[in-house]
Design a protein around this nucleic acid. Structure first.
Length: 342
DNA sequence: CGACGGGACGC
DNA sequence: CGACGGGACGC
């Protein structure tokens, strides 16, 4: 039933200089123990095709290596190249007619990686197959990920059991039914029999004519999910906004960027070092100013300075940061009205 | 400024 | 806030 090939990982993002031995050595340096590596090459020219298959003694070792290394820098690469691993599939090109039971996990703090996500779920559910945190081209988490289950009942249970879960990263988790990644635009748009996954459980049976990027049915504000999430969100705001400057900054950046771009806000985390340094400066300024005897004044100062910081960051990004270009390139799915802000 | 182009359902 | 990181099978 499952199409994943036992004991084998697919590895992409290979540079031409990366040989079989280089790949094996890289895994060993990271404490993993692959048996063999097959580097794929162009059939006619013999040039490396940019990916390989990595074999392990057991499926468990393969999955362990995948979750531990995915997204991490490959030893010996300069500039840094990151492990890009997936469970190998012998039916990657076959019609997507396998039901899969996944949850979308949001509100992941930036320190959460695949392995942490995997462990958090596999410690509570027996059928966890894979967990993946989505990262951008610089390796920064986008704050959400996917967890795949082998048993539908467990996936369904996790929808409410893990929603609001505290203990992975620093924020309560947000759980949602995952929409399988479309195999192609046409297949999704037409809702073919092969792509009818019957997103089990909530709402009307999923036979609707969803466009490729229309997820609105899963964001129904009347759903129990949103009610639960709003409760968590309120709790989180009250308990952390004043105490955690990082959180306050982040929420400010979201507000400031509403007329700019969501992707830029996502990339705000890329400047965490800069942000922390500026917060320390702000603290010093506050202290030399006679101290924060009034909490409201202190907080207003934070907001003001952070607002300036965001504008400055935006300008710097437009001038020099290639990440922004990447972000724009990858944000073509955004609705028109958001892109028009550019 | 905006720029590409690989690969495109299932009846 | 948000929906899958570029890449998928030789000998």
């Amino acid at each position: 039933m499952s199409s994943s090939v036992h004991c084998q990982l697919w590895m992409g993002s290979l540079e031409p200089y990366m040989t079989e031995n280089f790949v094996i050595a890289a895994f060993r340096k990271m404490g993993e123990d692959p048996t063999t590596v097959r580097l794929m090459r162009n059939k006619y020219t013999g040039e490396p095709a940019g990916y390989c298959f990595v074999n392990f003694a057991t499926d468990e070792k393969a999955m362990d290596a995948m979750h531990k290394l995915n997204g991490k820098p490959i030893p010996g690469t300069n500039p840094i190249v990151r492990f890009r691993l997936n469970s190998a599939s012998n039916s990657y090109k076959m019609p997507g007619n396998e039901r899969e039971f996944s949850v979308w996990v949001g509100d992941l703090s930036s320190d959460v990686d695949d392995y942490q996500l995997y462990k958090a779920f596999s410690s509570k559910y027996t059928s966890i197959k894979t967990a993946k945190v989505i990262i951008d081209s610089s390796g920064f988490s986008k704050g959400y990920g996917f967890v795949r289950f082998g048993i539908e009942d467990e996936q369904q249970s996790a929808l409410y059991e893990m929603n609001g879960y505290i203990g992975l990263g620093s924020k309560p988790l947000k759980i949602c039914n995952a929409v399988p990644k479309p195999k192609s635009e046409l297949g999704v748009a037409l809702g073919t029999s092969n792509s009818n996954y019957g997103y089990g459980g909530s709402g009307p049976t999923a036979t609707s004519s969803t466009a490729s990027s229309d997820y609105t049915q899963y964001y129904d504000p009347s759903s129990t999910y949103w009610q639960g999430y709003n409760a968590w969100q309120n709790y989180y705001d009250v308990s952390t906004a004043a105490a955690d400057p990082t959180s306050a900054y982040y929420q400010q950046s979201m507000v400031q960027s509403h007329s700019n771009t969501q992707t830029l806000a996502q990339h705000a985390e890329a400047w965490s070092a800069q942000r922390n340094a500026q917060y320390e400066q702000q603290n010093a300024a506050t202290a030399s100013n006679g101290g924060a005897d009034d909490e409201d004044d202190s907080y207003a100062l934070v907001e003001h300075k952070f607002t300036l910081d965001v504008d400055k960051m935006n300008r710097e990004a437009l001038d020099s940061d290639r990440n922004l270009y990447d972000a724009l390139e990858s944000s073509k799915w955004l609705p028109l009205e958001q892109l028009e802000a550019y």
